[in-house]
Amino acid sequence: MVGKRGAAVVLSSLLMMGSSWAWAATGQADSGKPSGEPSGEARESVLCVGASKSDYDPPLTLAPQQSRIRTTAHYACGVEPGGTVPAVGHMEGVAPEASCLGVNSSRLTETVRYGDGKHSVIVYTRNTTVRVAGAITIRLSGEVTEGRGKGQAARRTVSGLPEQLPTECLSSGLTGSTGWAQLEIHP
């Protein structure tokens, strides 16, 4: 029998898989360059998955407050048909009204460094947070502003659990969370 936390993780994982299939189907349908794009500039889709760890300063409580968010993700990225490279993503930003109920931020920036020497700088400007049975799923969306995928849409989905019991929201607060992240860059 699966407990509440297990069910939340399974549900979050299924949501992430579903979004991958939707983006993969879109990528197959639009494999060419948009009109007016200079020749020689390939538009490539990127799909990365891996472990993600976030830290909150100050810790999250039930009362909304400004909090600095720092995240590190260790990805395996599919960067071309059949090609996979390791990557590390570092994200940092300020959430003006973060709490245990949701981490809403107007702007976060992630720099992804790929094992093949390339990089992507992604600016996320939109987010949604869903909390189910203690697990949290955060979806960020924005655009690649520099490097691999420049000018393309980016979406980062992370499903995770707090590093402490949710009851910490009532006292000292949650200092961080760990989870499984998926990063999609698509024309």
Rank of each mutant, 00 (worst) to 15 (best):
M1T: 12
G3D: 14
V9H: 02
S12T: 10
M16L: 10
M17E: 15
T26C: 01
T26S: 05
G27F: 04
S31D: 09
K33W: 04
K33C: 09
G36K: 14
P38K: 15
G40Q: 06
G50L: 10
A51Q: 11
S52F: 00
D55Q: 10
Y56A: 00
L60G: 00
L62D: 11
Q65E: 13
R70Q: 15
A76C: 03
A76H: 12
A76Y: 07
G78M: 07
G78C: 03
V79T: 15
V79H: 06
E92S: 12
E92Y: 03
A95N: 04
E97V: 05
E97W: 04
V103D: 05
N104F: 15
N104R: 03
S105H: 13
L108H: 15
T109Y: 05
T111K: 14
K118W: 00
S120M: 04
S120D: 02
V121Q: 13
V121H: 06
I122S: 06
Y124N: 02
Y124D: 02
N127K: 00
V132I: 13
A133M: 13
G134T: 04
A135V: 02
I136K: 03
I136L: 12
I138M: 11
R139S: 13
V144K: 11
T145P: 07
E146V: 05
G147M: 01
A154E: 08
T157V: 07
L161R: 06
Q164L: 09
L165H: 14
E168K: 12
S172I: 12
S172E: 14
S172L: 08
G176A: 09
S177G: 15
S177V: 01
T178F: 00
